[in-house]
Structure formats: structure tokens, C-alpha cells
Nucleic acid binder design. Structure first.
Lengths: 229, 229, 229, 229
DNA sequence: GATGAATGAGTGTTCATTCAT
DNA sequence: GATGAATGAACACTCATTCAT
């Protein structure tokens, strides 16, 4: 902070290619997500994360405070992306049964495609959710999936094809459970029972069954008899 | 070599409860299961595990070689107990629909009651199943749950109340997924959506829905209309 | 951030002599050489080496990776110094017989004066040379001792005073063997046979005999009769 | 050594196949020699030594007290064997020059054939001879090599073919130095200078040169001119 | 903003040795 | 004499973190 430093600060030309704070943050966040997902919270090394980065270890501390801060940021970012994906879903125009099936399919596929995110959630659950992003930032009835399911369920009830007595949250829970388990427990499940369910065909079958299971759960017997084979 | 020593030598009762290898092994295994489940593989400290034990840290290495060996032993033991619980289930005499519901209920309750086991499985999945007990030790068609489901499903088909085209493995997958998610993801799920589903009432609802979901998935539409409210 | 901190920041002289990587490396290397030579590879403790150093134990790993890396560095450095000493020898101008004797004397004295180096070599031989510096770094026909002996021997042959049929490598082997044994085996030899050979007078006698032995080995009988008493 | 011991000693039938204390000692000693020679004093593990043995780790402590005691015993035994080999040498009848050469050859070959012994001596020298067997047990003018060399040298002087002014100890030192270095430093020497000297042909050359070197050193110029090519 | 150097407090692990039988 | 079980003290090595520049 003396004159020599000011000289350096004034001399833009002397800077490295990386002077955009947001880019640096994103760079670090990407490396951290990768390694945290790969090796878990304790297993991931700050050093290794830094090595995947274009900047030095010190920058991680500069931007995120400490390892836990970095983890929180990675987790928050991952949830944020998930929320974004959900926002993008627009099934409000579809007939309720089809909308429900599409949502189930989307969730199943999305989880399978974003293994890193699922792994982060697994790890965070091992930590009993201690580092979850602030409640007001993501929870409550303003979550778009829940709003979407509310809309679908209401329309299904109005059409007389959905059973009453269920809640959007319970529907979401079921869709999530099946889609999550498919990714999260693949390792142990396939070691015990073989990987028949995890081949491309197995996955296709599983996805169809998840959607069907959900529909059978929600549809009235008559609607089910009509809509399902 | 003096009188005091003779007293000790003469006093069998004063000896430690040790010198019983099986007991020491079990003691260590219990402490390790607890701490591994609590803090994860990397998070659990050998020192801390030993502190929960009646023996010294060194004994852990004497009996289990290293930390990974201890983890493997804990995991194998946990699976062994699970298999034992499954063996004990005798639902062969019940009508197929009831047997299926009982199995779902049992799994849901069993998972909820054995959080430690679920956490071990979560952790092992974070490690991509790298330390799973030998395949031939646990997998194959001789797993009792699968055999049980086979029997139930066959009887249901024979009675004309189950839909054809499903496999016991797929049924097991669905029961597991819902029961597992209920425990494994409680932390993150409840932070995002509140803990309504995890109160005693919420859990009871969830359990009933899991059973219902399964039955609706398996029963023919006619049987469903007859058997379910 | 208060006045005291400013004082420290302002006082450049109070800073440690560190932040000079080469100096730290050399510091560690010196301590390690000393302790490795004193106690052997397994016997030397990293902690003890660090204690001889102005820096923390951690720095040893920072600079050398692990204990073996440190040993390699110490050994390489010791050989490097030896090669340097050999380079400095300039006996090309002397008459061949005298040059040979001087080389023998130098080697004998040099080995005796650098016991630490000899001990390092002893230890490395116990390890079967597993950590030797890269072959291309030290060996080959470009070793200066060998080149020097080649020159001396060739000139002796040309002058008709050296016997033909010997190789520079064999001459080096003999000089080394006698000079090395004198240091390396002093402990056991003197315990068995007394220390008569290791008093200052004994050493002087030994040195003279080593030179004489070599000359008698190399000189033609006639030259020997002329040059040696 | 009390009555109880006598009882056990009297009861031959109760013993395992290994009840001969001397055999057990020898068994342990053999395993220890092997491992100490292979890995050094610190490098050798009591556990590993015991594993090479027909008996348990505890027996090592029973027979030898501690690791150092075992090392001392191994070293003493190795020296004892060496002395025995020397005793067996009978060169008193041969002409002095031939006797000398034979002694040199024997030493060179014997060292090369008993690498384990040389390695033990190397290790003991790293420890500065701290564990050498008692002086009176092995040292002094009563050593047979020295006596032998005394005899040879005296006869050579009497015959007028040996130069005066040398001592048997110095001759032994030279023979030992060359023979010892050949084994002890092979690892580092060959890594630096290649293994030309350590092929069967190289070794044969070296052995011949060692004998020649010694003879040239001891013979009068005239005798040398007569006896050596 | 950014870096290479530096570190205290722990981590899993090992080792010679002893105890109980 | 002999054994499997047990251990305290150390050991090499690691990690998140901070300092000096």
C-alpha cells in the first residue's frame, strides 16, 4: 500500500490475463464443485482444487473465506442451477396427467444427467444439512416445483381424474425419492444386485415405471384404467 | 514378584474383560460404526474411535489393519445384519397384497430405525462403492428379499390380482428408493421444504403412501379398486 | 492493524532471514546431511533434522516431498561436491608417477576429511544404491577422475614407465578401495586390531603405503627400482 | 533354573517338535542375520524376523533380551564363523609368495561369497562399531590371520624376497580393504562407473590384480621382476 | 488483487516391547 | 518354554490456513 504498490496497481498492462473477479469466482467454483463431488468434503483438498484453477490457493481464501465457505458457495450455486432448471419447466399448458408424467420424466433424467449435483446433495446429507443455503433463499411455498405441482394437481382434481387427499409436497417427495435413489445408490445397489437396472435399457424401463407409479398413485381408479395400459 | 503381585495374580476377577478377541473386535466395530456413521469416513478419527473403545488405538490396527480395513469390516457387518433382518421376515404365508404392504412397511420402518446403517450406505455411495463386501458374499439370486418378492409376486400373479410384466428386482428397487430417501435425504429435504413430512404424523402418512403407491403400482386396476380405499 | 503492527511492518530488519528459498534448502540439506551421516537413513528423525534447522518440519516436506526425497537430495549434493573437488584437481602438468601419487594422496586425505560423505555412501550401499542420483547425471566417460587417470596413464605408458594392460577404471577402483576402507571400516577394524593404524602416525604410514602400493602396481619393474626407495 | 523348570525339562513328551534351545537360537539367529543384512538394523523388523522363524516373536526376547541383543548375537556369530574360516586356512607349508597370493585370493573370494557378513559389518560400521563383540573375544595378536601373515612375512624376509619395514597388520589391512570394497561398494560404484568390474570376467581380473598388487607391494624389486610377468 | 513461502495442530500408522495365560 | 493379545511412544506425513511481499 505504499507508493511502489500504487505503481503496480496503476499499471494495467502488467496484470495477468485473469483480472475479472466474477470469472475467477466461477473458475474456482467449477473446480471446487468437481472435486467436492468427486471426493467428498473432507476428501477434497484445497490444494487440489487450486491446482484445477487458473489462480493460486490464496485466492480461494480471498474469495470464499475458508473451506466451509467454499463448500457453501458450491452448494448454493448447485441449488441455484437446479431452481433455474425448474423455473424453465413450463408444463402449465399440458393436461394434468401428461404434465405429471413429463415432470417425473424430467426429474429422473435431470438427476441422472447431473450426477455431480446429486453427489453434492449426498455429501451435504452426510453432514446433516449443516451448510445448506439460507432458508429464505430457497425454501418455502414459493419453490417453483411445488407451485407447478400445485397447479397440476389442482387441475387434475378439477378434471376429476386425480384422487383427492394428496399434497403437492408429497408428490414431489415421491418423484424425488425415486429419481434421487436411482443416481445416489447406484454404486451399492448395482454391486449387490447387478447392474441390470443401470444399463440404458434398464434405465429406460425404470424411468417409465417411475412415471407410471406416480400416475397410478395419483389417478382415480377409473382414470387409471382409462389412461394406463 | 512381591506379595502385591501375588494378590493380583491370584485375583482372577480383577482382570480386564479383555483377552477375548471376539469381544474386542465387536467393541471396536461398534465404536467405529457409530463414528463413521456420524462423521463420515474421512471425518471419523481413528483416535476418536479408539476413545469410544475399551482398548487402545493400536488394537484397531491389530484387528483391522488400517482405517479402510476397519471401514470395510463395519460396512460388511452392517450389511450382514441387514441380511439377517431380511431372513427373519416370514411373509410367505400371507395373501400377496398384504405381504407386499407388510414388506414395504417393514422396509420403511427398518430404514428409519437404523439411520446409522443408511448413513454408512450413503457414505459408501459417495465412495462409489469401492469398499463393498465381496459380491459373492452378498449378491446373486440368493438374496432373501428378492426371493421373498419373487414368491409374493408369483402368488399375486397366480391370484390374478397383480399386473404381469414386472420383476422382483424392480419392486425391491421401488420399495428401497422410497424408504431410503426418507432417511438419507431428510436433512436437505426438510431444510428446503420444511419438516412437515418428518413429524411422527408426517412419517406415518408417508409410510402409508409408500405402501399404497407400491400396491397401486402392482395391482391390476380391478384389484386396486377392490382392495384400496 | 494497530500501532504495534505498524512498528513491525516498518521494521524490515526484524524479519526472519527466511523467504530465501535457496538458503532454506541449503539449511535443511546441511542439517539432513549431518543427521543422516550420524544416524543412518532409518535412524535419522525428520523431527530432529528440522530441529537443527531454522525452519519448521513442514518445510522439509515442502521442499523435498518426503524423507526419501530428502535423502536423495542429500546424496546428490554430496556427490556433486565430490565431483567438484575432482574437477578442481589439476594434475595434468605433473610427470605421470608424481601425478598418480598425488591423486592417491588427495583421495586418501579427502576421504578422511569428509567422513560424512563416506558415511552417506556406506548407508546408500546398505540400501543397495536404490536412491543414487540419475546415472546420466554422474556416470559415463565424462567423469573427471577417470579422464584424469586416463591422461596420467597414457602419459606414463608413453614415457615407458607404466606397465601396459591396465585401465583407468581399475586404477581408480584401487585408489578408492584403499581410501574408502580406511574411513568406512575404521570402527570395526580398530576394535578388532587396535587403533595403531588410525593414530596420526598410523594414518601417515597408511597414506604413504597406499601411494606406494599403487605406484608399484603401475610402474614397470625398472621404473619402480628407479623411482621407489 | 528352579525345580519347576527341571520338571518341564524332564518331561520330554510334552514338548513341541522344537524343544532344543540351541536349535531355536540357531533358527532365530539365521532369520535375524538374513533380515539384518537385507534391511539394516533399523530397517529390520522384529516381527518380520519372527515370521521367518519357526517360533514366536516372544522367543526372540526370551533368548536375546532385545533387538540390540539380537544384533550383537548375530554379529558375534558372523565374526565367529569368519574366524573359523581363517583357522581352517593352512598356508604355512607354501612358499611365502604363493602363500600370500593364496591368502589374497581366499579373502577376495570369501568376501564375495559371504555378502551377508560384509553387509553386517557395513551396518555395524554405520553404528560406529558400538555393538562389537567383546575385545578379548576376538581381537589381539592371537588372531589367526595375523599369525598367518606374520609367519608368511617372516619366511619371505628370511628368503630375501620380501621388502623389510612392513607389518602383518598392514598387509592384512590392504588385503581386507580391496576385498571388502569389492563387495561393500559395488552398488554405488557400479551405478556411477558401470558394472564392467562386476561381471564374472571383471571379478576375475580384479581378483588377479588384488593379488598382484599385494605381491608387488611386498616383493623386493628383484623378486618381483623374477616372479611376476 | 495476487503469490510463493511458511506453519501448528493433527492424521494414520508403526515399532519394540510386555502382559495374561 | 511358549503364545496371542495388548500397548505407549513415536514416526512420517498432511491439511487448512496465514504471512511477507
Amino acid at each position: 500500500m505504499d507508493e511502489a504498490d500504487e505503481d503496480i496497481a496503476a499499471d494495467g498492462a502488467r496484470r495477468r490475463w485473469k483480472q475479472d473477479p466474477e470469472a475467477v469466482r466461477a473458475d474456482i467454483l467449477g473446480a471446487a464443485r468437481k472435486l467436492f463431488a468427486q471426493k467428498g468434503y473432507s476428501g477434497a483438498r484445497i490444494e487440489e482444487i487450486a491446482a484445477l484453477t487458473a489462480c493460486s490457493k490464496r485466492m480461494i481464501y480471498y474469495y470464499f473465506g475458508d473451506k466451509e465457505g467454499l463448500w457453501r458457495a458450491v452448494l448454493a450455486e448447485a441449488y441455484r442451477r437446479t431452481r433455474e432448471a425448474e423455473e424453465a419447466l413450463d408444463l402449465h399448458g399440458l393436461p394434468p396427467a401428461e404434465a405429471l408424467r413429463r415432470l417425473a420424466d424430467f426429474t429422473f433424467e435431470n438427476h441422472a444427467a447431473r450426477r455431480d449435483f446429486i453427489r453434492l446433495v449426498m455429501i451435504e446429507n452426510v453432514h446433516e444439512g449443516a451448510h445448506m443455503p439460507q432458508a429464505d433463499e430457497m425454501s418455502g411455498p414459493n419453490l417453483s416445483v411445488i407451485r407447478l405441482l400445485e397447479d397440476i394437481y389442482r387441475r387434475g382434481l378439477a378434471a376429476g381424474i386425480f384422487r383427492p387427499g394428496l399434497t403437492p409436497l408429497e408428490l414431489h417427495w415421491q418423484i424425488s425419492a425415486l429419481s434421487y435413489f436411482n443416481v445416489a445408490n447406484q454404486a451399492t445397489f448395482s454391486r449387490i444386485f447387478g447392474d441390470a437396472l443401470f444399463t440404458p435399457e434398464g434405465q429406460a424401463r425404470l424411468k417409465r415405471q417411475v412415471g407410471e407409479s406416480l400416475l397410478r398413485f395419483v389417478l382415480t381408479p377409473e382414470a387409471a384404467a382409462r389412461e394406463l395400459p
